[in-house]
Computed example of a mutant assay.
Amino acid sequence: MTTAPDDEARLREEICEVGASLHARGYTTGTAGNISARLADGWLITPTDACLGRLDPARLAKVNAGNEWISGDKPSKTLALHHGIYARNAQARCVLHTHSTHLVALTLAGVAAPDAVLPPITPYQVMKIGRVPLIPYARPGAATVAEQVAAIAGEVRGVLLERLGPVVWAESVTRASHALEELEETARLWLMLEKPPAPLTPTQVAELESAFGVRW
């Protein structure tokens, strides 16, 4: 099964539009970050050392189902990370990684807990992204990180890489960007308050899970 040319063209445009929007609003800087999107016969991924604010749809790297680079510019060095998530989570259609300021700062200041870097403090945090665990530091592109993330890719919708920033996945590129934005905003709120806010109660979290079909 192959992806229709029109569908792939639209997906290429969406990746570039989302990348430009995130870059323009300061969610990523320089050449940090990467975006991929699943195709029927592989996936697209932003090139290595590419600026998300200046992506060219025609130059996005294309990788086949066997994880082989077949066209476009050289793929991001996080290719194995993206591949592992897609292999373990059939619902994931996009994987998005940025070095968002407040989320990186959170790992430097100290997360709330390794299995949930932030407690559930807002309803949209629960609804859009859910519980996010911390992945201990390793160099960018390290195979150990890809393995750790792949192992839990079916249980959560995102992770926070220590000193490097968030990786989130969702049913579309746009939804992944919304989840990333919600997580970054939650980190900003957490860091700006002198006294950590009380989290939502277990009953309140359960109500959100039931009403919106999400999982904390």
Results as ranks from 00 to 15, higher is better:
residue 155 E to M: 06
residue 183 L to R: 06
residue 42 G to I: 11
residue 101 T to I: 08
residue 41 D to A: 06
residue 187 A to E: 06
residue 115 D to Q: 14
residue 185 E to P: 00
residue 60 L to D: 05
residue 191 L to K: 05
residue 202 P to D: 13
residue 172 S to G: 06
residue 11 L to Q: 15
residue 166 P to L: 03
residue 188 R to M: 08
residue 67 N to T: 09
residue 197 P to S: 12
residue 156 V to K: 02
residue 12 R to T: 10
residue 104 V to D: 01
residue 174 T to I: 12
residue 51 C to K: 13
residue 98 T to W: 07
residue 135 I to H: 03
residue 102 H to C: 03
residue 190 W to P: 03
residue 69 W to T: 10
residue 132 V to R: 12
residue 81 L to F: 09
residue 205 V to F: 11
residue 216 W to Q: 03
residue 184 E to W: 11
residue 64 N to Q: 00
residue 141 G to H: 02
residue 118 L to R: 03
residue 48 T to M: 12
residue 143 A to V: 08
residue 21 S to V: 07
residue 194 E to W: 06
residue 25 R to T: 09
residue 136 P to K: 07
residue 63 V to H: 08
residue 212 F to D: 10
residue 23 H to N: 13
residue 89 N to I: 00
residue 11 L to I: 13
residue 175 R to F: 06
residue 207 E to V: 06
residue 91 Q to K: 05
residue 5 P to D: 13
residue 12 R to H: 11
residue 211 A to D: 15
residue 111 V to A: 03
residue 118 L to N: 04
residue 184 E to C: 10
residue 69 W to R: 06
residue 86 Y to S: 10
residue 172 S to Y: 07
residue 151 A to L: 02
residue 182 E to F: 04
residue 200 L to M: 15
residue 52 L to M: 10
residue 186 T to A: 14
residue 36 S to I: 14
residue 88 R to G: 01
residue 202 P to T: 05
residue 86 Y to A: 02
residue 8 E to N: 11
residue 175 R to W: 10
residue 6 D to C: 07
residue 182 E to Q: 12
residue 97 H to S: 08
residue 29 T to I: 10
residue 156 V to F: 02
residue 213 G to S: 13
residue 108 L to K: 06
residue 108 L to V: 04
residue 116 A to T: 04
residue 123 P to C: 00
residue 112 A to P: 02
residue 204 Q to D: 08
residue 177 S to L: 03
residue 204 Q to H: 12
residue 174 T to G: 09
residue 194 E to D: 14
residue 171 E to M: 08
residue 202 P to A: 01
residue 1 M to K: 10
residue 145 V to Q: 03
residue 162 E to N: 05
residue 64 N to V: 11
residue 60 L to T: 05
residue 31 T to S: 15
residue 168 V to R: 12
residue 200 L to D: 11
residue 5 P to F: 14
residue 120 P to E: 14
residue 118 L to P: 02
residue 83 H to D: 15
residue 162 E to M: 09
residue 15 I to G: 11
residue 159 V to P: 00
residue 210 S to Y: 14
residue 114 P to I: 03
residue 176 A to Y: 02
residue 94 C to K: 01
residue 112 A to E: 00
residue 141 G to E: 01
residue 192 M to A: 14
residue 128 K to A: 15
residue 84 G to S: 04
residue 176 A to P: 04
residue 183 L to V: 03
residue 204 Q to L: 07
residue 60 L to G: 07
residue 86 Y to K: 11
residue 196 P to F: 09
residue 209 E to K: 15
residue 170 A to I: 05
residue 173 V to S: 13
residue 66 G to C: 08
residue 6 D to R: 14
residue 69 W to Q: 09
residue 69 W to E: 01
residue 78 T to D: 15
residue 162 E to I: 02
residue 141 G to S: 03
residue 175 R to Y: 07
residue 116 A to F: 02
residue 114 P to N: 10
residue 63 V to A: 02
residue 206 A to P: 09
residue 210 S to A: 15
residue 92 A to G: 00
residue 25 R to C: 11
residue 88 R to P: 00
residue 91 Q to H: 10
residue 212 F to K: 07
residue 58 A to T: 11
residue 130 G to Q: 06
residue 40 A to H: 14
residue 41 D to Y: 00
residue 157 R to H: 10
residue 180 L to V: 12
